[in-house]
Amino acid sequence: MKRGLILWLPLALILMLFAVFWVGLHRQENHDIASQMVGKPLPLFTAPAALPGQPGAATADFRDGKPRLLNVFASWCVPCVAEVPVLMRLKAMGVEVVGIAVHDTAPALDQFLARNGNPYARIGSDDQSRIQLALGSSGVPETFVIDGQGRIVKQHIGVVGEGDVPELLAALGQKP
């Protein structure tokens, strides 16, 4: 009886392995890569102005006691268009949005903002993704909530939708 059971063991193991593969292949996985910088101070950077008419961005701007949003975006990023109206609404509520434009050019950015609206108080240019890498950001768009002391308190990966507004306002310490 005992020997008989042991003979079935390899088959049982193989079936178990297949079950693991099956589950692994069919699970809807979340491929977002969370930044390890949440909870840490904003890395030091100085980003030159991406547009002639608007100031650039630097870490020092985030240490004046006012919480802000740091929005990593690009004019070539199609989903970024979708969040502009929401960012405009946040701006209307008194939220300051600082933009970091990744791999962008002034003319393309100008066109993007003319077409979709400009929610940004400042836009820094990040030609070589140095700021993006320092933030632990892995794509566009991503939005970080920075508290008044220049600490990263929250990372939002992907488009900011209407539904994300309450959560962002809460992280900013602002009442809706």
Binding site: A34, Q36, L133
Partner: peptide, 9 residues
């Protein structure tokens, strides 16, 4: 890099 993106990277 791991300090930015976690061991995943």
């Amino acid at each position: 890099l791991v300090s930015k993106y976690g061991a995943w990277v």
